[in-house]
Amino acid sequence: MIIVFAVFLLTLLVLTAVAVVRTENLFVAVMLMAIFSLLMATNFFILDAADVALTEAAVGAGVTTVIFLGALALTAEQEKPIVSGRWLPLAVVSVTVLVIIYASFDQPRLGDPGAPAHQHVAPWYLEKTAEFIDIPNIVTAVLASYRGYDTLGEVFVVFAACIGVLFLLSVPPVKPQKSKSSDNSSGLRHHLIPQVVGRLLVPFIFLFGLYVQFHGEYGPGGGFQAGAIIATGIILYALLEGEAAALNAIPKSVLMAMVCGGAMLYGMVGVAGMILGGNFLDYSVLHSDPVIGQQMGIILIEAGVGITVCGALLSIFHAFAERD
C-alpha cells in the first residue's frame, strides 16, 4: 500500500522538480514549487511524520508562495539565458549523485527496527518520555526538551535569516518609485466575494494557529507550525485590506520586538534554569515537581519559537511588499 503511494508521489516529485529547473518562466516555476511543496507534505504524511508534514504544510501552502511572488514582483518574469559554463556544475552534480546513490546501498530498509537510528537513544526517549515529561507527543518532547539546544540553534537561524533579508531589502531602491497613488489600489478591496470570504477565514486561521501552538504536546504541532499559520492569517489580512492596514494593525516595531523577544524568551528559559541551579535549558528545576517543570519549560520555549517565526515571516513579507 505504502509502495503505491510512494511510487505515485515520488514520480510526481521528480517530474515537478525537473519541470521547475527546466522552465524559463519564473511565474510557472513559482506555481510548480507550490505543487512541489504539497507533494513533499503528502510524502511526509505517508511516511507517518506528522509534525514535519504539518510544518511543510503551514510554510509551503501559503507563506512561501506569497514571498516568492513578492520576490517575483521585483524582478523580470523570464529567466535570463545561461550563456556558458554548464559543464562543470553538471560534472560536480553527477559525481555527487553517484556518491549518494552508492551510499544509499548501505541504508537500512524503510521502517527496519534494527536500523542504527533506532538503536541509539531513540528507545530511551520512547521509554522515558512518559516518566520524565509525561506528554503523549514524543516528537515535541525530543524537539523541545531532549534536543533543546538544536531547537535553540534553529530559532537563532530563523532570527539571523530575518535580519539578513531585512538588511538586503531595506536598502533604498535606486530608481525613484512610481507615484504613491497606485499603492492605494493594493489589496483586493474591490473584489467583494474574496474579501467577504477571506475576512471570515482570518479569525479561524488565528484560532487554528493557537490550537496548533498549545496542542503541540498532544498532537502534531508546535511553535514553528503555529508561527507560520498565524503569519499566514496576517498575510491574508494584508492581501485583503492592503499592506498599510496590516502594518497599522501590527507595526514594524512590534514585529522586530517579536523576532528578538521570542528568541530571547527561549534563551531566558535556559538561563532561568541555570539560575535555579540546573543546567542550561534544564527545565526540571523550573518547578518543585520536575515533570511539571519540564512541561512549563516546553510551553514557554514553544511560545518563544512561535513568536519568533511569526515575526520573522511577517517582517520578510513586508520587506518584499514595500519594495514594489
Binding site: L188, H191, I193, P194, V197, G198, L200, L201, F204
Partner: peptide
C-alpha cells in the same frame, strides 16, 4: 465547510 467556502471563491476570483 472550509473547502466549500474557499473552493468556489478561488474559482470565482480566478475566472474574474
Amino acid at each position: 465547510i472550509f473547502l466549500l467556502l474557499t473552493g468556489p471563491t478561488a474559482t470565482y476570483a480566478l475566472a474574474n
